[in-house]
Amino acid sequence: MFEINTLLVGLLLVNFVLLGASRLGTSVRQVAAQGALLSLLTLAEHAGWGAPWRVWLLALGSGVVKAVVFPYFLRRALREADVRREMEPYVGFTASVLVGVAALAASLWLASRLPLPGPVEAPLLVPVSLFTLLVGLFLLVSRRKALTQVVGYLVLENGVFCFGLALPEDAPLSVEVGILLDIFAAVFIMGIMIYHISREFDHIDTDRMSSLRDEAT
């Protein structure tokens, strides 16, 4: 259960599923799974069951928020907005997976070059975290639905979180909790926004909102 590499491979696979998923429901489920995996990973990094109480607190907290609360919000937003699929993304699903492969390669290369403050126990940790980060960014850039954007944002954050685990000196609890709170607020607001956007415009396609931009006067 606390085998780091297994968990990392799990994360990796989840990322690929996210890249190839067209159903929004799947995306939400996958991102929930990713949250759960990360929370386990936190414990695994810190000696499994014997982790100190504050690590437990962090792991449980982030696990509950990312695997239970966020998905709940997002599913509710989905229901309210009544959309199921990501139609016509800027980059097709197959192509996305291929991009994912390229991103993985890039992450591995980057990880080998990146100067880190100390040695890392699990060699996969840094590349996977970079990969997660890149996938998050890619999802943000290439998808149209507001909901997928939120998913991308979450994945991006997961990457950052994961990268944080790679650092030998762990960030203070307060910082981690603060970040968690930030994301919580962000997702909360985005959930509300998605609902309002869909009510106002009958869709949640962000590209169609370009008409809101400040026109030249």
């Binding site: 800027y90 960014l137 890619f138 943000l140 850039v141 290439s142 998808r143 149209r144 954007q149 962000t206 590209d207 909102m209 370009s210 008409s211 809101l212 931009r213 400040d214 030249a216």
Partner: peptide, 17 residues
């Protein structure tokens, strides 16, 4: 610099990325 602004979130994110 207005051409930079196209009103698409994805594009802005791309700038960031």
């Amino acid at each position: 610099l207005r051409w930079v602004q196209q009103g698409r979130i994805q594009l802005y994110l791309l700038y960031l990325v």
